[in-house]
């Protein structure tokens, strides 16, 4: 036995894990090696000292479960039923899972009127009543239809343009006539005003002449009288 081998046995020796034969061999070996004896004694003293470490205990229960409720009883009963009817093997569980999914799928399909269609590699899924199918147009028919629509659109646009142009011309003529009428009215009004002004001027001039003549007569009379 070497010192390292002896040290490897220390733990088993201290905790009573060696058989009698190995224990005696170790003890005999240690007796001849003072350093090992000291080391072992030191470790055993350490163990003894560790036992003096006090500890505090909890004063009350730190975690308390509530008593079973009615809900828990029902849950337990339900879980028991489910556990009873559930298969034990993984394959069985997988089978039940697939069957459950299929059943759920069928129920959902019947409730939602689900329609599944596979046509030419295309998969379609729809819900509700299926709309009646409509016959489609061929490419030539579509082209003809587009051409017809284009022609109709062109005709409609031309008619619309002509109508708009005609309406604009009528509106322009009407505006011109109104403007000419307005000018005539304005000219008449101006002429009347000029005529009235001339008459007034004439009248004023006449009265001015009369006043002048009268004044002159008075002056002549005054001068004649003085003489």
């Amino acid at each position: 036995m070497t010192k390292e081998e002896a040290r490897e046995l220390f733990i088993d020796y201290m905790y009573g894990g060696l058989d009698i034969d190995t224990q005696q061999k170790l003890e005999a070996f240690i007796e001849n090696h003072a350093d090992l004896k000291t080391e072992l004694k030191g470790m055993m003293d350490t163990r003894e000292m560790l036992q003096h470490l006090p500890v505090e205990s909890p004063k009350e229960q730190l975690v308390i479960m509530e008593p079973n409720s009615t809900y828990s009883s029902f849950r337990k009963w339900l879980e028991g039923i489910l556990d009873y009817i559930s298969p034990r093997s993984a394959f069985g569980r997988f089978g039940v899972a697939v069957a459950s999914f299929a059943l759920l799928f069928v129920i959902t399909a019947s409730i939602t009127d689900m329609n599944i269609k596979l046509d030419g590699g295309e998969f379609s899924l729809s819900f509700g009543e299926q709309a009646p199918e409509q016959a489609g147009f061929s490419a030539a028919q579509v082209e003809l239809l587009i051409t017809q629509i284009q022609q109709e659109n062109e005709l409609l646009f031309t008619q619309l343009l002509e109508a708009a142009q005609e309406q604009q011309e009528e509106q322009f003529e009407l505006t011109l006539a109104s403007f000419a009428e307005y000018l005539d009215e304005q000219r008449s009004t101006d002429l009347e005003f000029i005529d009235y002004s001339l008459n007034s001027l004439e009248e004023n001039t006449y009265y001015s002449f009369l006043e002048r003549d009268q004044i002159l007569e008075e002056i002549i009379e005054t001068v004649s009288y003085d003489r």
Binding site: E56, S57, P58, V63, M65, N68, E79
Partner: peptide
């Protein structure tokens, strides 16, 4: 489903864990 059993487990082990 017996919750009281867990209370007993706590009671048995809490001092050692503490």
């Amino acid at each position: 489903g017996n919750h009281q059993a867990f209370n007993k487990l706590v009671n048995n082990w809490q001092t050692r864990i503490h």
